[in-house]
Design a protein around this nucleic acid. Structure first.
Lengths: 215, 215
DNA sequence: ATTACTAAAAGACGAGTAA
DNA sequence: TTTACTCGTCTTTTAGTAA
């Protein structure tokens, strides 16, 4: 079963909407002859990993449910490889809309200056909130919150301390921040980053988000 | 490069600590003969994806840094496939006046014929130049320039290669063209289309322009 | 333009077996 | 026991072309 070809088609978006692609174009992507590319597409179809529709100047390719399941199995394998000890950790979940508190706290200079110093970036004033899946909740519990944010006092009130750990989401490095409160939910993480992640990654509520924990 | 075998070794833990494994045992894991298993291990070693140490009753296998990087790249690919949803990309910026170079290059038959073939339209001899905002610059970096334009040689001189990606601006489908030069600015895009976009959309310098990236 | 057949070359495989 | 060589066979690939 030709998983590398199937992966290539998925990276070209064939798991989302039908992809118009000729065998010559696909040949360039997989660095082969047109004949081999055509044969591989045919084989993927016979394995029921993709479905095809022929056009005068190419073909419309969609990855089937079966194909997506196959890719998902691969993803699981790689997640398993990198989710042991000493290796990388991935937190997964779905994007949700927070209460908007994050924006207020982050923009306070007392916290903001600490983010600049300790994380090395000026955070966009807002958080990306992700509701973790069951497995990720367990992984999260084992992460050491290695960056401490101290509390401070205003004229009016006191702001509590918290902690962070660094993460990467797509190609952006940010951090998960955790206020040190008693009743903070364990299944939600709040991510800060130098950019507005929701816009930058074009994410909407309910979208899957994968966050890699970095050192 | 035999990624499936490398993945199998990682799933057996060879990326964390040296794994004691004979070729017969590995053969069972990959469902092959002992000879094929031994040959594959040898090939992985030659590709510097694993390192081996021979024991009287098997071998000690470790995945190298290079091997781990290769696996990590695979993980990234699968995360990319399963992150976000259909997610369309929009580049935004302000209309500016270019140097007028675009007009010259586009009208050269060596390029023009490629645009006809690869993009499916005969470009209006001129480019719409847009200075991207910060967010769009980042988005742009992640777009795969999937259409390649090859260079050619005239009697007099050589014309370099480049690449494009398709875009839609209002209801017109065009393309962003990028010459493959060393000092090409990353904050400006040059759009070609079958019509004169500036006239067709009645655009003036400084106007906001939104461009949708299409597949 | 396409896709995909045939034929021949190239590559991968397993059985037998040496070290 | 190992690993891994040779060699015959089977599979995959490409070039040339047909449809």
């Amino acid at each position: 079963m030709d998983i590398q070809s199937l992966k290539k088609l998925a990276l070209l978006g064939a798991h989302q909407k039908p992809l118009e692609l000729s065998s010559v174009e696909f040949a360039e992507h997989i660095d082969s002859s047109q004949q081999t590319a055509a044969r591989k597409l045919k084989a993927l179809e016979e394995d029921k990993l993709i479905s095809r529709q022929f056009l005068p100047d190419g073909q419309l390719i969609s990855i089937t449910k079966n194909g997506i399941d196959t890719l998902h199995k691969e993803l699981s394998d790689y997640l398993e490889i990198f989710s042991g000890n000493g290796s990388i950790k991935i937190l997964s979940g779905k994007l949700i809309t927070g209460l908007g508190e994050g924006q207020y706290y982050i923009s306070l200079e007392g916290y903001r200056s600490q983010f600049r110093e300790k994380l090395g970036f000026d955070p966009y004033p807002g958080t990306l909130n992700v509701k973790l899946d069951a497995k990720s909740i367990e992984i999260r519990k084992k992460i050491t919150q290695n960056i401490k944010i101290t509390g401070f006092t205003d004229q009016n009130r006191t702001f509590g301390k918290g902690s962070c750990f660094r993460v990467r989401i797509a190609d952006i490095e940010g951090a998960v921040i955790t206020p040190e409160r008693t009743h903070y939910p364990e299944d939600i993480i709040e991510i800060i980053a130098p950019v507005n992640l929701r816009n930058y990654l074009d994410l909407k509520d309910g979208h899957n988000v994968n966050v890699e924990v970095i050192k």
